[in-house]
Amino acid sequence: MPSAPPPAQYDDRTTRLRPLSHLGGRLAPRAAAAAACLVLGVGLLGGAATGSLLTGEEDGATVSAQTAFHDASALWHSVPVDTLFPRTLDGEGAGPGGADRTWTRIAVAPDSGCTKAFDPLLHKALRSVGCLRLLRATYVDASQSSVTTVGLLFTKADAEATQALRTRFSEQGLDRRRDLLPRPYAADGTAAAHFGDAQRASWTISVLTDAPVVVYAVSGFADGRTVADPQPAAEAMKASATTAPAQAGLGHEAQGIADRIERGLRKTVQKSTEQPS
């Protein structure tokens, strides 16, 4: 799940009240006291009105975010697969050095639960948010040299549990551990036919907080070669990286595809929450 629309812009200009000293000695003490009360009263009323506007805006944004979060949980069965996983993805500037990429979808897994979709420790780490449904698709690059499985895990969690999981992944570095990898989806008769656990080369995992969804992608070589030391996409994409996954651009493949599927999901959530004018 998308970011809430930017808050309305309010004019922050306020009425400037003249200080009491400007009244000088023209006011009797009683009149001065009355003027002070008047100034204070206007200030309180103005502050209350401003506070009401700000509170209303905040409440509206909160309701909108909650609606979007809730609506996103139903997208796995209400949105066409071609919307969630387009047949082709445009990776303009997504390759090493800003090179363009194009990916073609070659397989879509039947929607399922999460059994056997993740390494055991990753499955355990995700258990706190539950598994409502898992959608997966596999893409191949234009050169047919790399394959990437991307997944959308729709969880059963509320916003609080989702935020807690994101914090845990960030603080404990769970998205970078080599013993917590997502598993690929291989399909017979495709370039990913031999894409198994041993072929995983690079990966990325993102816990969204504006939707009950975990987005991930894992990439490998299309020729079925094994990779002894897979590398997180964030590390493989560094200019200084010299590992086989990095040199082959497999970190860029995983991150580029995951980013585009995530963007598409956010746009879909936004459209689903828009109300007709």
Score class of each variant (00 low, 15 high):
residue 8 A to Q: 09
residue 133 R to W: 01
residue 81 V to E: 10
residue 107 A to N: 05
residue 109 A to I: 03
residue 113 G to P: 04
residue 76 W to T: 11
residue 44 L to Q: 06
residue 265 L to E: 04
residue 135 L to P: 02
residue 197 D to N: 13
residue 240 S to L: 10
residue 140 V to M: 08
residue 198 A to R: 11
residue 246 A to N: 04
residue 108 V to M: 08
residue 250 L to D: 05
residue 170 S to R: 14
residue 182 P to M: 08
residue 202 S to A: 14
residue 127 R to K: 15
residue 243 T to V: 01
residue 81 V to D: 14
residue 186 A to S: 15
residue 100 D to Y: 02
residue 242 T to L: 12
residue 62 T to R: 15
residue 248 A to W: 02
residue 142 A to L: 03
residue 171 E to Q: 14
residue 144 Q to M: 02
residue 4 A to G: 07
residue 51 G to Y: 04
residue 206 S to C: 00
residue 158 D to P: 12
residue 60 G to N: 11
residue 215 V to F: 08
residue 183 R to A: 13
residue 226 T to S: 15
residue 130 G to A: 00
residue 147 V to A: 13
residue 218 V to P: 06
residue 103 W to F: 12
residue 148 T to N: 08
residue 276 P to C: 11
residue 112 S to W: 00
residue 6 P to S: 08
residue 149 T to D: 06
residue 170 S to V: 11
residue 203 W to S: 06
residue 44 L to T: 08
residue 155 T to F: 10
residue 41 G to I: 02
residue 265 L to I: 08
residue 171 E to C: 00
residue 21 S to F: 04
residue 101 R to L: 13
residue 101 R to A: 15
residue 276 P to N: 09
residue 129 V to C: 12
residue 80 P to F: 02
residue 176 R to T: 15
residue 275 Q to D: 07
residue 47 G to Y: 04
residue 37 C to P: 00
residue 223 D to S: 11
residue 134 L to H: 04
residue 44 L to D: 01
residue 35 A to R: 05
residue 143 S to K: 11
residue 45 L to A: 14
residue 276 P to G: 10
residue 274 E to K: 13
residue 23 L to W: 10
residue 35 A to P: 02
residue 251 G to Y: 01
residue 57 E to T: 13
residue 101 R to I: 04
residue 102 T to W: 05
residue 68 A to T: 08
residue 220 G to H: 10
residue 7 P to A: 13
residue 188 D to R: 13
residue 125 A to R: 05
residue 109 A to L: 05
residue 2 P to L: 04
residue 153 L to S: 07
residue 140 V to A: 14
residue 268 T to E: 12
